[in-house]
Structures are given as structure tokens and as C-alpha cells.
Amino acid sequence: MPIIELTDVFKRYRVGEQEIVALNGINLSIDQGEYAAIIGPSGSGKSTLMHLLGCLDTPTSGRVLIQGNDVSTADANRLSEMRNSHIGFVFQSFNLLPKLSVLQNVELPMIYAGVSSRERRERALASIERVGLADRAGNTPLQLSGGQMQRVAIARALVNSPRIIFADEPTGNLDSKTGAAILALFRELSQQGSTIVLVTHDDKIAAQTPRRIEIKDGRIVQDFFNPDADLPGTARPLTPQPTPTS
């Protein structure tokens, strides 16, 4: 059963007189437990797509179903709730709050979920342990390395047990060795059953995920399963894309 379903999704931006079509008719379906990479050149619409999938934004037209909820017409509060309970984000620039400790950063999503402080602490510590930073819970982000910061971000993304984790260029700010370790962590999470959607423009990274969705000029131009990736994911034909409007 698909956890994400997009039908005829368009996103247009109006900048003065000019209209920019960031997403030009997207049909996409992602199943529970999949590990997919969205790849494409700069400006192709990857981030825009991820914002829609991650309930940070709504499409200009078309339908976005997340876990069966139609979020294309949801109001801002509903989107916040969806993000809080169903979605975890990992960003290229980590986006940790520098004044809070690692523990407090990881607790953040639970604060908005109304979790009691004791449970918050327990769950945050468990999540931090899961990314291998149990001994750094009391540190502030600025005392950590880039790879460690990204691990904290992943722990934060995991802490509310979301349905899907979105990562936008999660290794973009890391050296290749650290990046590889982060990807290994994603792979591990995927094996444990998490649904992960990764945004990248790096073919080497996309080659490691079981599914590879390539977009260009706001359209999906390729969607196939890696025969090499030894990860779960059912073989499935390319979702038919609507004809582009211009």
C-alpha cells in the first residue's frame, strides 16, 4: 500500500510577470518501507518536490496523499501536525539549534507533540543511542563534527517514529568518508523498516538506493529499481507521467 501518492502535481511560482514551473506534472507513488533517491540537476525541482512530500508546502494543483491523508488542500496547522507525527527531516545544513544541547535538539519534535518531559528524555536518549552518539547527549551541536551533527539531525528525525524520513542532500556538507557513514546509517534504518526518501544530485549516492527517481525540469524522466542494491523494494513499472503543460 503506497504511503505517498502524487497525482498530476504542479507547482508554479510567480515572480513578477514571469511564471516559473517548478513541478510540471508529477505522478509518483512510494510504498511503505521503500528507500528511494530523487536525483536531478540543480533547479530541476527536487527540493520543491520534497517540500510537497514533506508537508512543508502544498501544490498549485494536483493531489498529494500522505498515509491516505490528502494534504494538497490542508491548512497550515494540519500540515504542522502531519510533519510532526508522520515526517522526519534531515537537511544538508543539519539545522540544529545551536543553543540547545544534543538531547534538547532531539526532544524538539516531541515538545510539539505534547509528550511528557520524562518520556521525551527517554525517547530522545534512545534515538541518540540509535545513531551512535549516546556519549554526546549533553554537548551542544557546535562541539560536534559535521558527521556527528548530521547524526543528531537523524536522531531528531527518528524520534517521533515518523512514517517517512526525507533527507535533502544529507551528505552535501560532509566529506566523502563521513558521507558514506551517514548513508550506511540510512541503509541500516531502511533495513529496520523505515521509509526513506533521499534527495541528491550525486549519481553515486543514487546508485546505492534500491529505487532511483530522476527528475528534470520539474518532470520525472526516469523511475527504476536498482538491480545492484541489495535492499527491499518490489519491482514495479515506471508510474505513467501526465503530458506536460507549457
Binding site: G54, L56, A76, N77, S80, E81, R83, N84, S85, F89, N95, L96, L97, L108, P109, Y112, A113, R156, N160
Partner: peptide, 12 residues
Amino acid sequence: GVRRAVGAKGRD
């Protein structure tokens, strides 16, 4: 932005 992304509402 970060707080909003992890689920804070405008009201929060």
C-alpha cells in the same frame, strides 16, 4: 524554520 519543520504550529 526548524521548529516549524519538526511540527511547531504558527501558534506555538
